[in-house]
């Protein structure tokens, strides 16, 4: 398969484009996903308009038309509910819900409707839909546009929750999510959109619930996901200079979660650090530590450590937000502390 370098943003766009070409029941809607594209006065350079606030869906409306790429009113409950209803009656909707923080306004449609419908109906329905949403701090976007919050969705039975870290993974995981017959929350870290990586031109899928070892090592296991994968890899390089060889396990999906991959790595390295940009209470980080404590306690040479955002909203000021986000230095010092 021919590959070339494209951005995380382009990889996501390409997954949607290829899945929409492949399956006429795949449709996309959300606030500004067409963003003026295809309007009669939009010509030349303006033809593609917004394509979402960060241009992830650019070019899809011109290709597929406004019947399959629909702007919505700022009515998250209505269009997320419409996605649930459409999914249970024959479409495969992708609903783009700008920022994860906004999911608060339509949570009922996600966790009481989309997530529970199949179970409540005794398995006689399915809800093949994807909700795509941006996560993550670092854009100085303040408390209502910067959260991660994915742990909340992983907590809910009936939902799947995916957090990709690279362009390659983003494309393959999104293709899987669109083809999946359950509702999938697909979270895109906004600081990753411009990251480039090798991505095959053709369509491919990466199964949900399979972690990827992004760096092999023997000393300590770092379990992480999303943007934190890259900070962890950077930390791993620094630690390698000090003779500490860490393994970086990228979860990619947190529900389902690849427990085997976590345990296999910890049994090899005998220590665990979880690096998670989400808030710490009842979170992915605590979940992974609980798993290792229950299933691999005898293999541990040191206490499990969690590096997470603090238990606070995301602050605005650059001086504060930089403190909020887990840092490479913290990862390095934490891993080193396990050896003291």
């Amino acid at each position: 398969m021919a590959t070339r370098k494209i951005t995380f943003r382009e990889a996501i766009n390409e997954a949607m484009r290829l899945e929409m070409r492949r399956d006429p029941t795949v449709i996309l809607f959300g606030e500004d996903v067409a963003g003026g594209a295809t309007l009669p006065h939009m010509e030349g350079e303006n033809k593609e308009a917004w394509g979402g606030v960060l241009a992830v869906t650019q070019g899809l409306a011109p290709e597929f038309g406004r019947n399959r790429v629909l702007d919505t009113p700022i009515s998250e409950s209505a269009f997320i509910g419409a996605a649930v209803g459409a999914a249970s009656t024959g479409l495969r909707p992708i609903a783009e819900l700008m920022f994860v923080d906004f999911l608060g306004v339509c949570f009922d449609q996600i966790f009481n409707q989309g997530a529970k419908l199949r179970y409540m109906f005794g398995g006689k329905a399915q809800v093949p839909m994807v909700i795509r949403s941006m996560i993550g701090a670092g854009l100085r976007a303040a408390a209502q546009h910067s959260g991660c919050l994915y742990s909340i969705f992983a907590h809910i039975p009936g939902l799947k929750t995916v957090v990709p870290s690279t362009p390659y993974d983003a494309k393959g995981l999104l293709s899987s999510a669109i083809r999946d017959n359950d509702p999938v929350m697909f979270f895109e870290h906004k600081l990753l959109y411009d990251m480039e990586g090798e991505v095959p031109e053709d369509n491919y899928t990466i199964p949900l619930g399979v972690a990827d070892v992004k760096r092999e090592g023997d000393n300590t296991t770092i379990v992480t996901l999303g943007r934190m994968v890259h900070l962890s890899l950077e930390a791993a390089e620094k630690l390698a200079g000090d003779g500490i060889d860490v393994e970086v396990v990228d979860l990619r999906s947190i529900s389902p979660i690849d427990e085997d991959a976590i345990l296999k790595s910890v049994k090899k390295t005998h220590s665990l650090v979880v690096v998670d940009e989400d808030n710490p209470r009842c979170s992915l980080a605590t979940d992974v530590v609980a798993l290792v404590a229950s299933e691999a306690f005898d293999y541990l040479d040191a206490p499990c450590k969690m590096i997470t955002a603090p238990h606070t909203p995301v602050p605005f000021s650059p001086a504060l937000e930089d403190v909020y986000i887990p840092s490479v230095d913290t990862i390095v010092s934490t891993v080193k502390s396990l050896r003291e």
Binding site: A82, A83, L91, Q109
Partner: peptide, 19 residues
């Protein structure tokens, strides 16, 4: 959930229109 059916109903509506 009181009022949940409204958004849901838009779904099959959209399905019928799309297909």
């Amino acid at each position: 959930i009181v009022g949940a059916g409204g958004p849901l109903a838009c779904g099959p509506g959209l399905m019928a229109k799309t297909l």
